[in-house]
Design a binder for these strands. Structure first.
Length: 755
DNA sequence: TGAACAGGCGCC
DNA sequence: AAAGGGCGCCTGTTCA
């Protein structure tokens, strides 16, 4: 019998003692990385066990993993898989009480570990017979010919590049696997015209499987002009299986679904050594400097694993709803986003620089004003260093110690006195410091996060090409990241939006859906009163306020006669979509209206609201029950939201899950209306050879640069595709589309503010 | 030096 | 009894 040790950090051993009972003999060790705890529990601590004494060492929880296997962080990633020959990391079973969703991971990890120890899992060796390199043209072309001739329908392809965006790097090589048994990494250097012809034949004949197709196709199109009529994406399949972000990387999936585990580790070790030898910081590492021979096994393994993953993950397509999401949203969405990203966001360099210097001046002025307050110098003398307004720790001590302002009672997550915007506004009456800090924060945010970041990343044509992601939200919304998150540009301050300018002869056309999520709720709940509000064609929140409060005026008059009532109705409408309670709604209304609105008043309005929208209330209750009973729910367009935590014994976690599930129903369908409309419009643009270019999506809006003579055509067709009856529609009252058209995305506000 | 966390804040 | 959903990214701080 193998000699096994178990190492853990906490002292709760009962869980796994029971789980592993009888499977094998094992010794236990407690790991204490925290020195203060270590002293107290000295007797239990034995972190200096000799690993040579054991054939296997089970590591419970991330602390234990980190201690023995350097460079690892996430235990969920490798739970149940062998690491570094003899270590078997596994998630801590004590978390199951609070996180029942981890039950599956625990069970399969446990089974795996037992198999390893009983010798039922054989070690796989990665060598030339399965992962090899090609640097010779003839050999390369023969291999591609072999791939073309192979009977299989699928070919996995992966590319190695020196950058994340096609214009920021070049291609080093591509890996191909056509039988799931072996894969080749081909050096780009050996490509000839014939190679490219053969590759295009391959890409045209077969269905090409990528892991993150958006990335590979963008590179392969930009650098070679290859076309991919049929492709699949293992990352998107993984997303269908588990919509929670974070575990869709090839590495994590290979560990989970292939026998090859963390095969790239030696390459990262090579990189670490190389950086150490040459004194290169992590961020400055150039992927181009990895020699072909170092890269080849790992690059080839990427294609091999992608192939294996596809064979396993494609089973999710047996679920007809998810298959539909994949075929009709995710794959067409990939194609659409490649083009949208390639179009890029048109920036005006001069405006960016102007805005940048204006922001810097404002910051300098505010800092100068700040130093006129003697408290700052006092603080600096006490602490012996310069005051940094960006440090919350320093600000906290300045406000509450040096200045002696009374804390508002609002705390941060860790129990310290908060210094957020709300607190600073409250404190502004007693000192000029909070106001100045707010000003510095606001301008610095705009400068640091947007202007400073955009300028150096512009492409030669002054366009910014950033990423939109299909796989990183639980609701099916897109996310945006990379060079710039296009979904969080300041809305009211024109400094950034004003820098997005259409080329001469073009306009920026921004289409917004109006109250999309409420529209979805109205359709799904079939609430007659809510539907009537949409049918009225009048301002939605005014119509709602009139109905809820039975206001004795026309809908148009609500806006100025009953402003407060309208505000309350609006807050409740949105609050309900998020599952907010009276407390939150009272805070929201107080904030919006500037007048105190008590939780009791909020409670009464909510009651009135549900009395008016009775069917909506019933629909919400019905779905709450469904979510609680089943632990998952499907959206109108077939997306699935898994919520295993509805079974949690923690009431907070449980109710959070139920709120998420309900919000998912409206958020998901609303954003899919927008995405499907954009995809269809994009196809229409291509089919009709229009010159309009969609360059960004923001959840329920679509941004495009449109030639002046196409504006009417574009707007009319976009509205058509958005309002198309996809089954989610109020007959006679399609979802509202607002159009804004201007030379820049601030719609002229930039000029007024800065020029 | 790098990673993780904390606090904060931008958007829909 | 109380309960706001979904994101990404900045700077500062702390610790290994």
């Amino acid at each position: 019998m193998a000699k096994v040790a178990i190492v853990e950090k906490t002292a709760s051993r009962t869980d796994y003692n029971k789980e592993f009972e009888g499977a094998f003999d094992f010794d236990q060790y407690q790991l204490c990385s925290d020195s203060s705890i270590k002293k107290v529990l000295k007797k239990d601590c034995d972190i200096s066990i000799d690993t040579n004494d054991y054939e296997w060492i089970i590591l419970i929880g991330s602390e234990a993993l980190k201690y023995f296997v350097k460079g690892t962080t996430s235990v969920t990633e490798s739970s149940g898989s062998r690491v570094d020959k003899k270590f078997l990391p596994v998630i801590n079973p004590s978390m199951l009480r609070f996180k029942p969703e981890a039950r599956k991971t625990w069970e399969s990890s446990k089974d795996n570990i037992i198999k390893y120890i009983k010798g039922e899992i054989e070690e796989v060796v990665i060598d030339e017979s399965i992962a090899f390199g090609i640097q010779d043209t003839a050999e390369c072309n023969n291999f591609i010919k072999e791939a073309i001739a192979h009977e299989g329908e699928f070919v996995a392809v992966d590319s190695e590049t020196t950058g994340l965006y096609p214009r920021d790097g070049y291609m080093q090589g591509i890996s191909i696997c056509f039988d799931g048994k072996r894969a080749a990494y081909i050096d780009i250097e050996c490509f000839t015209e014939e190679t490219e012809t053969l590759l295009q034949q391959l890409f045209s004949k077969k269905t090409i499987v990528f892991h993150n197709a958006k990335f590979d196709i963008a590179f392969l199109e930009y650098h070679f002009n290859f076309k991919f009529p049929k492709f699949e994406d293992t990352m998107l399949l993984s997303y269908l299986i588990n919509e929670n972000p974070g575990m869709h990387g090839l590495k994590a999936l290979a560990i989970k679904f292939t026998p090859y585990g963390d095969y790239e580790k030696p390459m990262y070790e090579w990189m670490d050594n190389y950086r150490k030898e040459h004194g290169i910081l992590k961020n400055d590492f150039d992927w181009g400097c990895i020699p072909f021979d170092v890269m080849k096994p790992y690059a080839a393994m990427d294609a091999l694993c992608t192939y294996i993953l596809f064979e396993k993950l494609k089973k999710i397509k047996e679920n007809p709803k998810l298959k539909k999401v994949y075929d009709e949203i995710l794959i067409p969405g990939t194609r659409f986003l490649i083009d949208t990203q390639e179009n890029g966001v048109p920036f005006n360099n001069e405006r960016l620089r102007l805005a940048q210097s204006v922001m810097q001046e404002n910051i300098d002025k505010a800092i100068a004003a700040l130093y006129k307050n003697s408290a700052i110098r006092e603080w600096e003398e006490i602490n012996g260093k310069d005051f940094n307004p960006a440090s919350t720790v320093q600000l906290r001590s300045l406000l509450f110690d040096t200045l002696g302002l009374p804390p508002t009672g609002k705390k941060t997550g860790t129990g310290a006195n908060s210094t957020d915007a709300e607190v600073l506004e409250q404190l502004a009456e007693q000192s000029n410091v909070p106001k100045l800090i707010l000003e510095i924060r606001q301008r610095s945010k705009i400068k640091n996060t947007y202007l400073d970041k955009i300028i150096p990343q512009l492409d030669r044509d002054n366009r910014l090409r950033t990423s939109f992601n299909l796989h990183s939200t639980t609701s099916g919304r897109l996310s945006s990241s990379g060079k710039l998150n296009m979904q969080q540009l300041p809305r009211d301050n024109p400094a950034v939006k004003g820098c997005i300018m259409a080329a001469p002869g073009h306009k920026i056309v921004a289409m917004d859906l109006t109250t999309a999520e409420v529209y979805v709720a109205a359709v799904l709940s079939e609430d007659k009163a809510l539907i009537k509000a949409f049918r009225s064609g009048e301002n939605f929140h005014s119509a709602i306020a009139k109905t809820v409060f039975k206001l004795p005026c026309t809908i148009k008059e609500v806006e100025h006669l009953y402003k407060d009532r309208r505000q309350a109705a609006k807050a409740v409408t949105f609050g309900i979509m998020y599952g907010a309670g009276p407390k939150k709604i009272s805070e929201q209304v107080t904030k919006d209206s500037g007048k105190y609105f008590s939780p009791q008043e909020a409670k009464e309005v909510i009651e009135d609201y549900f009395k008016t929208f009775h069917a909506l209330n019933k629909w919400i209750d019905k779905n709450h029950r469904y979510i609680e009973q089943n632990g998952f729910i499907y959206s109108f367009f077939g997306r699935k939201r898994r919520l295993p935590n509805v079974k949690s014994s923690d009431a907070g976690i449980k109710s959070h899950s139920i709120r998420s599930g309900l919000n998912f129903l409206v958020q998901s369908a609303a954003s899919d209306i927008n995405l499907l409309g954009a995809i269809d419009m994009h196809h229409y643009i291509q089919a009709n050879d229009m010159k309009s270019r969609i360059f960004a999506l923001v959840h329920d809006s679509i941004l495009a640069e449109v030639p002046e003579d196409e504006i009417e055509h574009y707007s009319e067709k976009l509205q058509y595709w958005i309002q198309l009856d996809r089954g989610l529609i109020i007959p006679g009252a399609p979802i509202g589309c607002d159009f804004e058209i201007g030379d820049d995305y601030s719609m002229g506000k930039f000029e007024k503010a800065y020029q």
